[in-house]
Structure formats: structure tokens, C-alpha cells
Amino acid sequence: MKNKLASFIENNQGITAIEYAIVGVGIATIVAAVMSNPALENALKDSMSKISTIISSL
């Protein structure tokens, strides 16, 4: 039992998976907030359009 606990603590793959899950939940929350608020959605669309225009003019 002690060896399994030590192996679990030393295994970084589980920690990395949890970190990615937390980041994914954060991004999903931001996307949901933007999509549920028309003002934020329009501001994001306008910003992306301006960026696209600037990039295409280069």
C-alpha cells in the first residue's frame, strides 16, 4: 500500500490531466459567458473582424 501511494504521488501525469481539466473548465466558462451576453458576443465579433482586416492588409 505504501508503494502504491508513493507511486501515485510521484506520477505527474495525473497532475497534468487535472491541470488541463481546470483550464478546460475555465475556457468553457468564459465561452459560455460570452455567448450568453449579446453585447460581449458582438464586441468579440467586432474585434475579430478588425484583427482579420489588419492581418489581410499586411
Rank of each mutant, 00 (worst) to 15 (best):
M1E: 14
M1H: 12
M1N: 12
K2A: 15
N3I: 15
K4D: 15
K4E: 15
K4V: 11
L5N: 09
L5G: 02
A6W: 14
S7N: 14
S7A: 15
S7I: 08
S7H: 11
F8A: 13
F8M: 12
I9G: 06
I9S: 14
E10Q: 13
N11V: 07
N11Y: 11
N11R: 08
N11P: 06
N11F: 11
N12I: 05
N12H: 07
N12A: 07
N12R: 04
N12T: 04
Q13I: 05
Q13P: 01
Q13S: 11
G14E: 15
G14V: 10
I15H: 10
I15P: 00
I15N: 12
T16V: 12
T16C: 09
T16K: 10
A17M: 10
A17R: 06
A17G: 03
A17L: 10
I18G: 00
E19A: 05
E19R: 00
E19M: 02
Y20H: 11
Y20C: 10
Y20D: 15
Y20F: 10
Y20R: 10
A21F: 12
V23L: 14
V23Q: 14
G24W: 10
V25C: 09
V25L: 12
V25Y: 11
V25I: 13
G26L: 08
G26A: 05
G26F: 07
G26K: 05
G26E: 13
I27G: 04
I27H: 06
I27K: 09
A28N: 07
A28P: 05
A28R: 08
A28L: 11
A28K: 11
A28D: 09
A28M: 08
A28S: 11
T29Y: 10
T29I: 08
I30T: 12
I30C: 07
V31G: 06
V31H: 01
V31R: 07
V31M: 08
A32Q: 04
A32S: 09
V34G: 02
V34R: 03
V34Y: 00
M35Q: 09
M35P: 01
S36N: 09
S36C: 08
S36V: 03
S36F: 08
S36R: 02
N37K: 03
L40W: 07
E41V: 01
N42Q: 07
A43M: 03
L44I: 04
K45F: 06
D46C: 02
D46T: 04
D46E: 08
S47D: 04
S47Y: 05
M48H: 02
M48Y: 03
M48V: 01
S49K: 00
S49A: 01
K50C: 02
I51K: 03
S52P: 02
T53G: 14
T53M: 07
T53C: 01
I54M: 08
I54R: 05
I54H: 06
I55S: 00
I55T: 02
I55F: 03
S56D: 12
S56V: 07
S57V: 03
S57K: 07
S57Q: 11
S57A: 11
S57I: 02
